[in-house]
């Protein structure tokens, strides 16, 4: 004997598939109250509902990239288990190496795009960090490597900022300690990486400019967080702020020094005392060539339009934004890979 629950459920399924209430009632005429219940059910099915507009392709892109990453980590090459694939895998080591390198490079682009917005604790986050490590390993040029490190440092900063923005701090609530710890970890990594790049790049003007830019952003985020935490977390943020400010100051000084060195180098390379001229200059001691410059100030004036003679006058030009290069530090998903030889 079928229970009333089963009969009702069966009839609800008929309704969902387009059958009428009368059809169901005629099939089970002895069930009391069946018609009224089915009328209610049919009406419920017909209530108009919002259709959520999630992007199916975007979601699949993320899923597909994660699958590719899992397969790459698992070392799976022969998905079809065909004999030909197994033959290639077993006997073509050179081909395997090339395929692996090409696959990894291709993987960097797709997975990086898919995982780049993930945050600590999310499923794709380990994929994001793995891709960053691979990117760094494959970048050979030291200057480019520093740029990549700064890019990753900015990722950590963005992650911290996003977590703060997503955290409910309404009604004077503070950020919870465990969330504050995650934020602090990201900020520490960002600050440490920036400081290291600054130390290693004292002779690279472009990198130093990027360091200064990034430390500005770090200061801004840390200042924002400082007002939202208390106790040990607040102390940690204050220490981080101090460290970031020191890095910025160091970078600015190195930059200023480089600029000064460049200016001085430009001055000393101007050919004012060639050996021939030196002989002439020696003979100038008697005052035979009054127009020939004989002092540093005279050399500068001889260059014509040069008005800035000290680093104090040069520095404002560097930081008025006209000389900064933000295009290559926009945090885009395009990965620069140095050509492998």
């Amino acid at each position: 004997m079928i229970s009333e629950e089963h009969i009702l459920d069966e009839c609800v399924t008929y309704l969902k598939n387009g059958r009428s209430v009368d059809f169901c009632v005629s099939k089970y005429p002895k069930i009391s109250g069946l018609r009224e219940k089915l009328v209610i059910a049919k009406h419920a099915y017909q209530i108009s509902k919002k259709e959520p507009a999630l992007n199916r392709d975007r979601v699949w892109k993320n899923v597909s990239a994660a699958i590719a990453s899992f397969k790459s980590q698992a070392g799976m090459l022969a998905y079809n288990n065909s004999p030909f694939q197994i033959f290639k895998f077993t006997f073509s080591k050179a081909l395997f190496s090339v395929v692996t390198v090409v696959a990894v490079i291709g993987l960097l682009n797709t997975t990086a795009v898919a995982a780049q917005n993930s945050l600590p604790g999310q499923t794709l986050y380990p994929v994001k960090r793995t891709v960053e490590k691979i990117e760094l390993t494959l970048t050979l040029d030291q200057s480019k490597k520093s740029e990549v490190r700064l890019k990753h440092a900015e990722h950590r900063l963005t992650e911290a900022k996003t977590i703060v923005e997503n955290t409910d701090v309404s009604e004077n609530k503070e950020i919870q300690p465990d969330t504050a710890a995650v934020i602090q970890q990201a900020l520490n990594e960002s600050a440490d990486a920036t400081a290291k790049v600054a130390e290693e790049s004292t002779d690279n003007k472009d990198i130093l400019k990027k360091v200064v830019e990034l430390t500005d952003k770090q200061e801004s985020v840390l200042t924002d967080i400082e007002g939202k935490v208390s106790g040990d977390a607040k102390d940690a943020v204050s220490s981080a702020l101090t460290a970031v400010s020191e890095t910025k100051e160091t970078a600015e000084k190195s930059l200023a020094q480089l600029e000064q060195n460049e200016t001085e180098a430009a001055v000393t390379t101007t050919p004012t005392t060639t050996p021939q001229k030196n002989e002439d200059e020696n003979s100038d001691k008697t005052g035979d060539n009054p127009d020939r410059p004989t002092s540093t100030d005279d050399n500068l004036n001889a260059l014509g339009d040069l008005t800035a003679t000290t680093s104090d006058e040069i520095l404002p030009e560097l930081f008025d934004g006209s000389a900064s290069d933000t295009d290559s530090f926009s945090g885009s998903s395009t990965i620069e890979i140095i050509e492998l030889k």
Binding site: L54, V59, N62, V63, A66, T123, L124
Partner: peptide
């Protein structure tokens, strides 16, 4: 996607959650 979107109003967060569900299922 309907199940998630009816419970998580932020579109990008809902999409990320749906992706995580299918990734977890694959794994």
């Amino acid at each position: 996607s309907r199940f998630v979107a009816y419970r998580v109003s932020h579109k990008e967060t809902a999409e990320d959650l749906v992706a995580e569900i299918f990734i977890k299922a694959w794994e």
